[in-house]
Amino acid sequence: MPIRSSRGRAGAYRAVWQWPLRSPARLAVTVVVLGGLVFGLVSLGGSGGAASGGLIAGGGSGGNRWDSGSSGVSATPTPTLLPPVPELTPEALPVSRAPRQALETARVWASAWVNHPDGTTSQQWVAGLRPYTTDEFLGVLAGVDPSNVPASRVTGPATATRVAARSVEATVPTDTLTLRILVVDTEAGWKVSRYDRA
Rank of each mutant, 00 (worst) to 15 (best):
L41H: 07
E187A: 13
V172Q: 01
P20D: 06
A57T: 11
D118M: 14
A198S: 14
V126G: 06
D135Y: 07
R197P: 01
L93D: 03
V29M: 14
L138I: 08
S43A: 11
L55A: 13
Q18D: 13
V114P: 01
E91R: 06
R4F: 10
S70T: 11
R26E: 01
N148Q: 13
V149L: 06
A127R: 04
S193D: 07
L41N: 10
L103F: 04
L129K: 00
A170N: 00
V29T: 11
V154P: 02
G46C: 04
G143E: 08
L81I: 08
S74N: 14
T30M: 14
P79S: 12
W109T: 04
I56K: 12
A165P: 00
S52M: 15
G59V: 03
R180I: 01
V42I: 08
R130W: 08
G62Y: 03
A142M: 07
Y195F: 15
A106F: 00
V154R: 01
W125L: 08
A28R: 05
Q18L: 11
T178P: 01
E87P: 04
G62E: 14
V172N: 00
A112E: 06
W113A: 15
G40S: 09
S6H: 05
D135W: 06
P83V: 14
S52A: 15
S43K: 06
V154K: 01
T89M: 10
I3H: 12
R100M: 06
V42D: 04
R97N: 10
G35E: 02
V163T: 08
V149A: 03
V16N: 12
L88V: 15
R26A: 11
V95S: 04
V29P: 00
P84T: 09
A28Y: 02
G49N: 05
L182H: 02
A164C: 09
A151Y: 00
A25S: 08
L129I: 07
F39I: 13
R9S: 15
P86A: 15
R22E: 13
V172G: 02
P77G: 11
T159I: 09
W66C: 14
V108F: 02
L177M: 13
Q18V: 07
